[in-house]
Nucleic acid binder design. Sequence first.
DNA 1: TCTGGGGTCCTAGGACCC
DNA 2: TCTGGGGTCCTAGGACCC
Length: 342
Amino acid sequence: MPRWVLHVDLDQFIAAVEVLRRPELAGLPVVVGGDGDPSKRGVVATASYEARAFGVHSGLPLRTALKRCPDAVFLPVDKPAYEAVSDDVMMTLREFGTVEVLGWDEAFIDAGAAGDDDPEATARSIQRRVREATDLDCTVGIGENKLQAKLATGFGKPAGVATLTYDSWFDVLGESSTDALWGVGAKTAKKLAELDIHTVRDLATTHPDTVAKRFGPTIGPWLVRVARGVASARVSGEAWLARSHGKEFTYQHDLEHWDEVVREVTRLAHEVAGEVVAEGRPAVRVVVKVRYAPFFTSTHGHKLAEPTSDADALAAAALVALARFTDRRPVRLLGVRAEFGA
DNA sequence: TCTGGGGTCCTAGGACCC
DNA sequence: TCTGGGGTCCTAGGACCC
């Protein structure tokens, strides 16, 4: 008997949370992103299904969303609100087994640990409990490993249950383009197409060495395994340990003067220091990111002489990294990231 | 389409050492 | 000093995901 992995994904999570606390928004096109002002620089975090009907989707510039759907309700991103609801959801999911959290609105559940021979029934129970506890709908994907479960969810949206197994993998996905796979984006799909690999089946039947020549010894064979539906079924309930914390900010008006850039990097470094302190582990390296107005981005880092959580030391390191930027064109975005040791 | 912010992981190349 | 090969560390960048 296969060991089942379940993947739970909340439907239009952020928009749904907003509708929950403002029921008058139900049924309206709702777009959440930036600070809620669609005339500013920013992108859509989530659009309700009603807004999606107008071609508004995650990642779309807010200004474009406004053009496509002028009557939409635009709301600012309210992180703490989503985190609070997410915590409720995850707590509910833990009633069913080990939970591996993937983000605010996604998790794997190892329901097989309970000797589950009817994962569909478990999936329906999960949906019922999540709705009872939070008033939110979710979709559940069932698979023999995490990859299959994750991709199955896409076929169950919204509010449904779908299953993907080694048996059904190629029937369902064989003719799909490679970017349907989890971990394969537009860039990788394009490179694969140059090797005359277009579909999931094409990739699955290519020798791993062929793919490794183009993508390296780790990613190459991994791509072929993913195309075959092969992945880990281990659901880890271990607490997440952050590798880094950062802050970045896109300016409404490009910074024209380098002294402003210096000031802003110092400010961001102090904000990041607050998170490093909260993390309870010292940082070992600081990385500064600069995106110039023509949308060209580069980064420079500086390893700390010794691990530290001290705000002034982190700010000083950020300025050392910043000094390595010699280009003085207008700056659109600045970022500071602190990395923890291994 | 004038293109966010939070992250993670992998790779390639150079430095350095034996 | 015309000049190998391997290992490791560091850094910048690429790609992806939510």
